[in-house]
């Protein structure tokens, strides 16, 4: 069954999404490195568990964290984003990613603005990334 669209009226302040479980696998990291073209030796090409994972994965798991049960309506605009990398993520880690709506309002130009605060924790429950995503929601 197709997922429903995630619409502005679903996104009141305080709305929390179920935690996303995001395994940082070797395959994922290798594919990421290949697509981005980032051959930083710190990542060891993602060939072994325990190697450093690229921080750019954050933009992927942040988005997935609020779209597990919905699809994004067409026409959304990423307004502003902030990522804080608290601690390294390692290949083989499994992240739990929690998103919560912290701001939701219609601005003076009738644009629907939503800000989400997203925390990713590793399997030791340590926060590894904090993300603040502001989106102009399409409908």
């Amino acid at each position: 069954m197709d997922k429903p669209e995630l619409v502005f009226s679903d996104l009141g302040v305080g709305k929390k999404f179920r935690a996303l479980t995001y395994p940082v696998t070797r395959d994922l990291v290798r594919t990421f490195i290949d697509v981005v073209g980032d051959d930083n030796p710190l990542y060891e090409k993602g060939l072994r568990d325990g190697a450093i994972a690229p921080p750019g994965l954050a933009a992927i798991y942040a988005r997935l964290s609020y779209l597990q049960d919905h699809v994004m309506p067409a026409g959304g605009v990423l307004a502003k984003q902030e990522f804080e990398f608290v601690a390294p993520i390692l290949v083989g880690d499994t992240l739990a990613v929690n998103a919560e709506v912290v701001e939701s309002y219609v601005d003076e130009k009738a644009r629907k603005r939503v800000t989400q605060l997203i925390h990713a924790r590793n399997q030791k429950h340590e926060v590894v990334t904090t993300i603040r995503l502001s989106v102009i929601w399409p409908k």
């Binding site: 981005v36 073209g37 980032d38 690229p54 921080p55 990398f85 608290v86």
Partner: peptide
């Protein structure tokens, strides 16, 4: 964003992953 992260990792390495914003 991945490209911006690539640049910061290239310049600051592990420091970027422990407090980079």
């Amino acid at each position: 964003l991945a490209f911006l992260n690539e640049l910061m990792m290239l310049c600051f390495g592990m420091d970027w992953l422990s407090g980079g914003i």
